[in-house]
């Protein structure tokens, strides 16, 4: 199956581990991802803060650039995923906006018919189009004994008919339990990580991050898996600063769900981007997974 692929800016550099592991897992499952040629930044939350029409037009350019042969696009980053869906949705609901966005696109000799491209998340693809039997079949390294907290965050599951139930999403939990992991309760799994709040108010941001880490520790998770570059960055790169701020001692590795899928499918760890996380994940994973293998 062929899909257009919108990596987004975070996956180019700060979350390259996500990009590498998405591509590796997709490859193994026979999902062909074709990167949208010359895609641009989705503007995250920052363009909507300044100019709604420009925000929509900048996002719509990417939808307009999707190869006419393809009608689905995979966007791994939560902000990109939400923005692409949101603009498609707004254009469908609001003819005036649709016409204005297309006037903007016309200035670049482009056009987009809302509804033409379906925006999907890889989790949804894996869950719905592949399912339990296929995934179990691919397991080389069962995740038995590994306690996993599945973190969905906000923008992938929330409005615009997102990937999962907005209050109690379960697809990630189900996928990892198929692969043998011990999925722990994680009541805050759909809470927000704070997004760009670290840049605006550190005390506020650190408290939002602390709640997530505390909850994962309370349920004795070995690792938190995430689907979003912002969540990964906030929980991983700021973990030390959060510890300093609250005098805590969290050392919870934060990895992308595709990295752990890749481990279960026996893919090469380097190719999955391990080693780029600030709180190292490999020691915990290797200890847990070999302990089970030896027992």
């Amino acid at each position: 199956m062929k899909y257009a692929y919108y990596p987004g800016c975070s996956l180019e550099c700060n979350s390259a581990a996500y990009d590498h592991s998405v591509r590796a897992v997709a490859d193994l499952l026979g999902i062909e991802l074709r990167e949208i040629d010359d895609w641009n930044c989705c503007g995250a939350t920052e363009y909507f803060t300044q100019d709604e029409l420009a925000a929509c037009a900048v996002i719509a350019r990417n939808l307009a650039l999707v190869d006419p042969q393809l009608d689905q696009v995979v966007a791994p980053c939560a902000a990109c995923y939400l923005n692409l869906r949101k603009v498609d949705h707004l254009m469908q609901e609001n003819p005036e906006l649709e016409s204005k966005v297309n006037q903007c696109l016309a200035a670049g000799k482009l056009h987009y018919d809302p509804g033409r491209v379906r925006v999907r998340h890889l989790l949804d693809l894996i869950y719905s189009d592949f399912g339990e039997a296929t995934l179990r079949d691919k397991v080389v390294q069962p995740l038995t004994g590994l306690r996993v907290a599945c973190y969905y965050g906000c923008q992938i599951v929330r409005p615009f008919h997102g990937t999962d139930n907005p209050e109690q999403p379960t697809k990630l939990d189900e996928v990892f339990s198929w692969l043998g992991a011990e999925v722990v309760d994680f009541p805050v799994k759909a809470h927000c990580c704070g997004g760009h709040m670290t840049q605006i108010s550190e005390p506020q941001a650190f408290e939002m991050i602390r709640r997530l880490l505390a909850n994962a520790e309370e349920y004795k998770a070995d690792v938190i898996v995430t689907m979003c570059p912002m969540c990964q960055l906030n929980l991983d790169a700021y973990q030390a600063r959060v510890n300093g701020f609250f005098h805590t001692d969290y050392k919870i590795p934060i990895i992308f769900f595709t990295q752990l899928l890749g481990v279960a499918f026996g893919l090469d760890w380097k190719k999955l981007g391990f080693g780029k996380e600030i709180v190292p994940a490999e020691p915990v994973l290797r200890r847990k997974l070999t302990a089970v293998a030896a027992a």
């Binding site: 909507f48 906000c154 923008q155 929330r158 809470h191």
Partner: peptide, 8 residues
């Protein structure tokens, strides 16, 4: 922070 909890 645009988490859309309120909206959903």
């Amino acid at each position: 922070v645009s988490c859309y909890s309120c909206v959903s």
